[in-house]
């Protein structure tokens, strides 16, 4: 359960960005969470909503999370695939040398402000 620390770090960045841009209110916060980032999306939403109450500037904001799938490119046969399981054997040739393309994101992309 480290989603609370993640939410706290996220909120720090949101408030900092909003203040630097002289925004009065933050309405939406867009984040990308890869399936490999070890984040439970429901827990992150819960933690965000709990902590935001303490700050006037983000109190009415909504967190919008993009759940990014795991995709990778096999270094042996070159096939690009989506991985449901986190066991990275290439679905086409079976090789383990799969270079990850997406799935490790733990980023804030933009915020909507008033």
């Amino acid at each position: 359960m480290h989603e609370a620390s993640i939410a706290a770090s996220l909120i720090e960045i949101v408030i900092d960005t909003a203040e630097k841009n002289k925004a009065e209110k933050v309405t939406k916060v867009f984040v990308k969470i890869g399936r490999l980032a070890a984040i439970e999306i429901d827990s992150l939403e819960f933690a965000y909503d709990a902590i935001k109450e303490e700050y006037e500037i983000i109190k009415d904001s909504e967190i919008i999370i993009e759940d990014v799938p795991i995709t990778g490119k096999c270094q042996k046969c070159g096939v690009t695939d989506t991985y449901e399981e986190m066991f990275f054997a290439c679905g086409a040739c079976g090789a383990f040398e799969v270079e990850l393309l997406t799935g490790e994101e733990l980023t804030i992309t933009e915020i909507e402000v008033d």
């Binding site: 770090s9 960045i13 980023t107 915020i111 909507e112």
Partner: peptide, 13 residues
């Protein structure tokens, strides 16, 4: 209403 680009790692600190 406007969008502000952030593009930061959440655990940047």
């Amino acid at each position: 209403m406007g969008m502000v680009d952030v593009k930061a790692k959440i655990l940047e600190k």
